[in-house]
């Protein structure tokens, strides 16, 4: 018989010790008195808690900070050049083809991704101005990649994305994240990265893979 003290019973039931003592006094909780101390039979206590729907402690959707790294995400998503196409739809077909695929991805990954990117674009353009767009799926979803991925796609020729400033887009950062928190952190990093006029000019020059990755690493030194 596994025995539990008042203290651990309080932890188990997620109530204060005072509550446990009151329950003992009122005779509602099955307790045993051993050498002047109250003890509970663990199995009996658990059964009692289940019967009375008293929950065990569990954090209320605590936004656990995921350690995201744009550097790793871009490594995973890859940097791609000379993407052909005259509309966002055509370009997304290429994007879906070129993104990294692990065997864990579902067989309909490409179609699903393509559809959801277009749906998101239809809501509001992801073109943030200055020739840059940050396409991402309409809703966060677990793609099975294990970690967030950001694919960088330099277009063969600028394409109209109905961006806020009307400027045709020449580079895409496509974000694939499993969780809301991950998506927001990644989105925030990418938009800060491309926010400065210098970076935009630098991107227009289509830097090499290693060069771009280095620059990202320097921009977010705290990311591993």
């Amino acid at each position: 018989m596994e025995q539990v003290s008042v203290k651990s019973a309080a932890e188990l039931l997620n109530v204060s010790e005072k509550t446990i003592y009151r329950w003992i006094r009122q005779g509602v909780i099955p307790a045993i008195k051993l050498q002047g101390q109250y003890r509970f039979d663990q199995r009996e206590l658990e059964g009692w808690a289940r019967h009375n729907r008293i929950g065990s402690p569990m954090s209320v959707i605590e936004g656990q900070e995921e350690a995201v790294s744009l550097y790793r995400a871009v490594q995973l998503g890859g940097i791609h050049y000379k993407i052909e196409g005259d509309s966002p739809g055509e370009i997304f077909t290429q994007v879906a083809e070129l993104l990294p695929f692990s065997p864990r991805l579902s067989p309909t990954f490409k179609e699903t991704l393509h559809t959801t990117l277009i749906e998101r674009e239809a809501l509001v353009s992801t073109g943030i101005g200055g020739g840059i767009a940050l396409p991402h799926p309409r809703h966060p979803r677990d793609w099975g990649l294990g970690e967030p991925a950001v694919g960088v796609f330099f277009l063969d020729h600028p394409v109209d994305f109905h961006a806020i400033d009307g400027e045709p887009v020449f580079v895409l950062f496509v974000l694939l994240c499993a969780t809301v928190a991950g998506h927001l952190q990644m989105l925030s990093r990418v938009s800060h990265l491309v926010n400065s006029p210098q970076t935009r000019a630098y991107l227009r020059a289509q830097p090499s893979r290693t060069d771009l990755l280095e620059r990202i690493r320097h921009a977010f030194p705290q990311d591993v």
Partner: peptide, 18 residues
């Protein structure tokens, strides 16, 4: 954390944090 991050104001949709 992003409420005052103006760079996200016109790119982050409610749908993406649903």
């Amino acid at each position: 954390p992003y409420l005052f991050d103006a760079t996200l104001y016109s790119i982050m949709t409610i749908g993406s944090v649903l």
